[in-house]
């Protein structure tokens, strides 16, 4: 087993709707889909973000596109208009997800 950043095997983008942030996460290769499925669960993500994401996190699988959509409620400090954060629209929530550490088995990325 070794630890890597999710970014090594995935890419995506974040968007905002009010105080909700969505981050899509696509496998960089088709075989990485199952690693993301195993490692990036809503529970793990919720634990990872801690106080930063106050609401529920839902994961929607999209196997035909080789990825997942994560929807995080109360994730932007009140949303575009209310938030005191520098990144009130959560443009960098995508890269914040991508720096999460995940475990991969030996040979799994070969």
């Amino acid at each position: 087993m070794r630890e890597i950043c999710l970014l090594e095997i995935a890419h995506g983008r974040s968007g905002d709707k009010g105080d909700t942030s969505n981050v899509c996460v696509f496998a960089r290769k088709p075989e990485y889909y199952s690693i993301i499925e195993r490692e990036v669960t809503p529970e793990r993500l919720k634990e990872y973000f801690g106080e930063m994401v106050k609401g529920e996190i839902t994961r929607y699988p999209l196997p035909a596109l080789g990825g997942f959509n994560f929807v995080m409620r109360h994730a932007l400090g009140g949303g575009a208009t209310m938030s005191l954060r520098l990144d009130s629209l959560g443009k960098s929530m995508g890269s914040a997800v991508m720096r999460m550490k995940i475990q991969v088995k030996d040979g799994e990325l070969d």
Partner: peptide, 16 residues
């Protein structure tokens, strides 16, 4: 494919 996918789910909540 990749550029299109990133925009495809932009600001989408439940994809169904």
């Amino acid at each position: 494919e990749q550029s299109c996918k990133e925009q495809f789910l932009y600001e989408v909540l439940d994809p169904s």
